[in-house]
């Protein structure tokens, strides 16, 4: 049995689900952010697999743009987390309840 498209797509789906699980379960903002990145990488893997198996290289170019946007997103997100830590002295989502009530 050769490795087909569905192998790669299944792996991407499971990877995405693992990242989603982490986002729901963890309470540390940094770990949640890492899991978000994991979901993004999983979607990238699906895109590359579709691109290869359809023989159209456009997907690879999309991956290039996704990586660039993800890099910008990580920089801004981590700066927000650091600013939050300076102000509230915590990064646990349970304690960040200023909007509650």
């Amino acid at each position: 049995m050769t490795i087909g498209l569905h192998h790669f797509i299944s792996l991407a789906v499971v990877l995405f689900a693992v990242g989603f699980f982490g986002v729901l379960m963890r309470r540390n903002t940094l770990i949640i952010y890492m899991c978000l990145e994991l979901m993004l990488v999983a979607s990238t893997l699906a895109l590359v697999a579709f691109s290869r198996y359809n023989g159209s290289p456009e997907g690879n170019i999309f991956v290039f743009f996704i990586l660039t946007v993800a890099a910008a997103e990580v920089a801004v997100g981590l700066a927000i987390i650091v600013a939050l830590f300076r102000r509230r002295k915590t990064v646990q989502v349970g304690e960040l309840n200023a909007l509650k009530n």
């Binding site: 790669f8 990877l15 893997l45 590359v48 697999a49 690879n60 991956v63």
Partner: peptide, 13 residues
């Protein structure tokens, strides 16, 4: 994941 990309011939990504 990068190694899987190489398996898919996507060397630059």
């Amino acid at each position: 994941v990068a190694a899987l990309f190489v398996m898919l011939d996507a060397y630059l990504p």
